[in-house]
Amino acid sequence: MIEVQHLTKRYGPTTAVDDISFRVEPGEILGFLGPNGAGKTTTMRVITGYMPPTEGTALVAGYDVATHPIEAKRRTGYLPETPPLYPDMTVGDYLAFVAAIKGVPRRERKSRVQEVMKRTAVADMSNRHCSKLSKGYKQRVGLAQAIIHNPDVLILDEPTSGLDVKQRSETRQLIKDLGGDHTVILSSHILSEVSQTCQRVVIINRGRVVAVDTPDNLTSRLRGEETLFLQVDTRGADARPVLEAITGVRHISPSDVKGDLVSYEIGSDPGRDIRRELASTVVNHGWGLLEMRPLRMSLEQIFLELTEKEGVPETPDGEPQSAGTGGEEETVHG
């Protein structure tokens, strides 16, 4: 649905986006992740046809945005970082105007406006001036504006920035609902956000793609081993030698002792599930098993690791890998 090939954008001497390629399948929600200034907005602006690329192409629904801008734009909905609202217009008038310029046929405009207002829950603000809306409502009207012509592709630039916790989860839910009908790219620098909403993540840094994968795979692929967090009540006994004896355990981190409670972080061979053995060992020794859970590297950590490392190797042909189905692929991070 969206195909970005070798996209490069330079502003004078500075290169904002450097040879980015990725594709988004129909109905997919793709997260676009990167620190501020990484080139997220620039990439999105090229895909929406706001600015032409310096090199490379972006295809939306098969139309090159540079050579067939009208066709491509007809199929694209875009929510820029600040919702593009006219302060003097009422929400209803504003959406009707957007419907008109997005090419919604005259007879359908009224019903479309009603429909998107209902969908984004802004119907009660229909007669309110845009300048008088709260931040959350502005964002939702921005979203309503982006979907008014029922586009195939939705480009959302930081859709949840500046919202409170409740509004954020509402917006996330709305975006999830929109995926399926629409192909969505959403950018964010908040990682938990992306991992909750998106099926696939593109991490970019300094204008380059650093990694492309599902949030789950990114987390597991980057770890060389599995880690478990274990908390036991050993009644004063030292559990370490017993635990170390279990096959598959590579190392045990220094324990954290609180009275009788002892916590360990246990690293094990990749692909090996040692939870059953661990549990039965603890129980057989008559200790209390209080907590056991797998520790995953948070996206936050992965993100820092990926973006802070210079020269993270890419896949050989420069093409980012597509989402895998399992963990059998090579790690992105060598």
Binding site: R45, T48, G49, I70, E71, K73, P84, L85, Q145
Partner: peptide, 14 residues
């Protein structure tokens, strides 16, 4: 200034 130009320039208008 208000960024609404992004709306106009990304709409199917010449």
């Amino acid at each position: 200034r208000s960024g609404t130009i992004e709306l106009l320039l990304t709409s199917p208008l010449t």
